[in-house]
Write a protein that binds this DNA or RNA. Structure first.
Lengths: 334, 334
DNA sequence: GTATAGAATGTAACCGCTTACATTCACTTC
DNA sequence: GAAGTGAATGTAAGCGGTTACATTCTATAC
């Protein structure tokens, strides 16, 4: 691989001049620029990004941490982040935190040790305090699905409470008076917010919340199935179910089916997140849309703006959920 | 951030010695090693990976190119690759090729310009010739879902023909005599192989292949729906459908449903790939398992072995598909 | 014609590490 | 006791760029 030195030789200029045309900065006369570019072409020269990084103290890489690399939900986000950053000539290093505090910290360590210029994190397990000190450290961070007062401009979140409020309202308006709730892990802030929205909708409709109609899961399919089993076993009748996310809703549906109940005739179900395969289900699952793709894109833009000094980027920080009505809910005959 | 120089000062040794304990190579006396380690700890020293890369001419990063970053299928692969490589202290740079020749080439260019030590590619659009010259270039590549004679040890593939052969046989054995085929884009080698397996199973069962029962799609949902529409419109009756992948099968199912037909009573359907949500469908989709996760892992290991000199890794190159029987197929009453 | 300013280009130090080679030093060996 | 040996450590030259500062050159003003 040719180096900048060889290019300078061939073009008959100094290293500095070649570097200047490379960074098309400063003033280089059109004539020398042309000479240098010709030399680069002739040698098939491509800058060594590692050397550039070392000299400029900028790696042009941003680290992205998500709970899981697979999974319907995060793939979308990864995709939009990569798309946006790649277009700006930056590259992305991904890592998975597996919703475990130690693993999340280890991954952050790992990414930081990789000289990332910035980190985009979708984490739950680490504390606000930890994130606070991290945010005050040398490498800037952006947060998806979480708010940190220290860096309001680089936090991107959805109004989770509003989302399940809408979902619950939809069920109530269809005549459901007994509505169960399948909660996410309540130590996670978003799971709590979603639960609050559910309760608020109930209260506003003059319905009381019944502890026996609550089950807590971990956002995964199996826990949804198990949650539904415990709800049914409790014996309190209900005609609607609001699930804190789509995956648990799927688990719940499996359980319901195994008992010979049919959806939505015997039970109306509504999920949250609008992961892509909810459309494919039969009946298609009603859910609440979570615009994770644009949120990822916005986070990417915020680092483009704050870290790389790019200007004129359109950025939004707060997002509104939107109800997606499909066949898994039906009117309840009073 | 502390540098190796400060560590050497504090420990009272030379730069080289610090570097030696860092790479725990060579012989360093236990005493000096301890001194150095203490100094590193005291300074909170962490090596600058960029500088290491520049000096050692090794970036410790491997580039991974997939058609799409989102999507049920590739997420699994990304996940296992990251897992395996991360455990070895390497990091992964992902990029998407979008099954487009120019974009795939651009992504490969991009990854190579990032000084990746190796590339793991899941590509279709670029030619064998292009891959051949790439493989002879300076950066080693590994291929998933494709074979290149130049690098047999770093190609990882599934016997696609066998997979659809099995799927088709399964339908035939259930009494289906009229079986339609929803092909992938036939310019892709795997789509062709799958189609061949279908034809072979038919021939072996003494059934003739009817051109009117063939539709070609692009592996995406919408094309499956459209393919099914054209099959139905053609008017030739059939009781079974083999789809070249699961996503198209989903599209086909939508179309079928809209016409009031029920699966599997009116039509038995079988897909290919066993993407995770096939389980969630109702009825659950029969399919052919594609062990993309272990294939990704194996590709990662092959670069660990060939590029980073790691030994004792268990590696397999060829994989066998396996039929997954679920509720979307039923016996056809003769 | 000389002084002077500003644009274009060059010089060289540095980024933080690796590594070939040189040096030191404590033991053996005869 | 001199010479030889090998392990531990040090020296210094890169790796391929960036960039502050110095230098050269040209055009303008007087």
């Amino acid at each position: 691989m040719a180096t900048i030195y060889e290019v300078s030789e061939l073009a008959g200029v100094s290293l500095a001049t070649v570097s200047r045309v490379l960074n098309n900065s400063d003033k280089v006369s059109p004539a020398t620029r042309a000479k240098v570019e010709a030399a680069m072409r002739e040698l098939g020269y491509r800058p060594n990004t590692i050397a550039q990084s070392l000299a400029s103290n900028r790696s042009n890489s941003v680290g992205v941490l998500v709970p899981e690399l697979d999974g319907a939900f995060f793939g979308i986000m990864l995709s939009s982040i990569e798309d946006e950053l790649r277009a700006a000539g930056k590259h992305v290093i991904f890592s998975a935190g597996h919703s475990d505090e130690e693993k999340e910290k280890a991954s952050i360590e790992f990414l930081a040790s990789r000289q990332c210029d910035a980190l985009i994190l979708h984490v739950f397990a680490v504390s606000d305090e930890y994130l606070g000190t991290l945010a005050n450290g040398p490498v800037p961070i952006a947060l998806i699905g979480r708010n940190l007062p220290e860096i309001p401009g680089r936090c991107f979140s959805l109004d989770n409470e509003e989302g399940s409020y809408q979902a619950t309202r939809a069920l109530v308006e269809l005549g459901h008076r007994k509505v169960a709730y399948l909660a996410g892990p309540l130590w996670k802030s978003d799971a709590r917010a979603r639960f609050v929205g559910f309760q608020r909708a109930l209260a506003e409709s003059g319905l009381s919340f019944d502890q026996a109609l609550l089950a807590e899961g971990n956002y995964q399919e199996a826990s949804g199935k198990q949650g539904m089993r415990s709800l049914l076993r409790a014996g309190k009748p209900f005609t609607g179910l609001v699930s804190a996310n789509d995956e648990m809703a799927i688990g719940a549906i499996e359980e319901v089916r195994e008992r010979g109940m049919v959806i939505p005739d015997d039970l109306s179900i509504i999920g949250f997140d609008n992961v892509f395969f909810t459309r494919f289900m039969n009946p298609a699952l009603s859910t609440v849309n979570y615009p994770i793709d644009v949120m990822g894109r916005m986070a990417a833009r915020s680092v483009l703006r704050d870290v790389y000094g790019q200007e004129g980027l359109e950025i939004r920080n707060r997002f509104e959920p939107a109800l997606v009505r499909r066949a898994s809910v039906a009117r309840h005959a009073q």
